[in-house]
Computed example of a mutant assay.
Amino acid sequence: MKYTVSIEIALPREKVVRLLEDPAQRPKWLRGLVLHEPLSGEDGQLGTRSRVVMQMDRRRFEGTETITRRESADLREIQTASVVHFDREIVGEGMWSAARERLTEAGPETTLWESENEYRFSGFLMKLVGLVMPGAFRKQSLQHMQDFKAFAEHGTDVREATN
C-alpha cells in the first residue's frame, strides 16, 4: 500500500526542520508515542536504529526505526537546498513501512511537508488489516502532520489535548 499526504506549515523551513529533529519535542506532537530510544547511532542521524513504541487506543505497536536518508543537517545546507529530505524505515511484527519526507520552502514563512508512505504486511492478520483498513494508515499519517502543525504554529501539546 502506498500513499502521499501533505500539509503547509506557517513557519520557515529551517524552524520546521529543527522542531522535527528535536527528540525532546517529539512527545508534544507525535500522538501515541510511548518510547523512541536510539539503539545504535545518534538520534535522527543517517543509519541510526531506534526502538519505537506507539500506543493507539488499545493497540500497541513496537518496532525498529532506521534512518535511511538524511540531507541538510547543517543550517547553511537547509537554507540553500531546494528540498530537505529525510527517510526512515520501520519494521515491526507483521509490518514494514517506509516514509520519505520532503520539506520544501513554499514561501519565505511557509513550508510544504510532503510524506510519501509505503506499507508491506506479512502474516494473515496484518495482511487482513492492510486490506480492510487502508484508509486508517493514511488518516493516522495526516493526523501526525496536523498535530505537528498545531504544535509548531501554536504550541499545542497533544498530551494535553488528549487527556
Rank of each mutant, 00 (worst) to 15 (best):
L11D: 05
E14A: 02
V16H: 03
R18H: 11
R18K: 14
L19G: 00
E21Q: 08
A24E: 12
A24R: 13
R26Y: 13
P27T: 05
P27Q: 05
W29K: 04
G32P: 03
G32N: 00
V34E: 12
V34G: 09
V34T: 11
L35E: 15
L35C: 10
H36C: 11
S40E: 15
S40I: 10
S40D: 14
G41C: 02
E42P: 08
E42Y: 11
E42M: 11
D43W: 11
D43M: 12
L46K: 07
G47M: 03
R51S: 09
R51H: 13
V53F: 04
M56D: 14
M56V: 13
M56K: 12
D57V: 10
D57F: 12
F61N: 05
E62P: 04
T66G: 04
I67K: 04
I67A: 02
T68I: 08
R69Q: 06
E71K: 06
S72N: 05
R76E: 15
R76L: 11
E77C: 05
T80H: 08
H85D: 07
F86P: 08
D87T: 01
D87L: 02
G92E: 10
E93S: 15
G94F: 04
M95K: 13
M95F: 11
M95H: 12
M95D: 07
S97P: 06
A99Q: 15
R100N: 13
E101A: 14
E105G: 03
G107I: 01
G107L: 01
G107Y: 00
T111Y: 00
T111D: 00
W113D: 02
W113P: 03
S115Q: 12
S115R: 12
E116K: 06
N117Y: 11
N117W: 12
E118N: 08
F121M: 04
F121D: 03
S122R: 14
S122D: 06
G123P: 00
F124N: 08
M126R: 07
K127R: 07
K127D: 04
L128D: 08
V129N: 04
G130N: 03
G130S: 00
V132M: 15
M133D: 13
G135Q: 06
R138W: 08
S141N: 09
Q143L: 14
M145E: 10
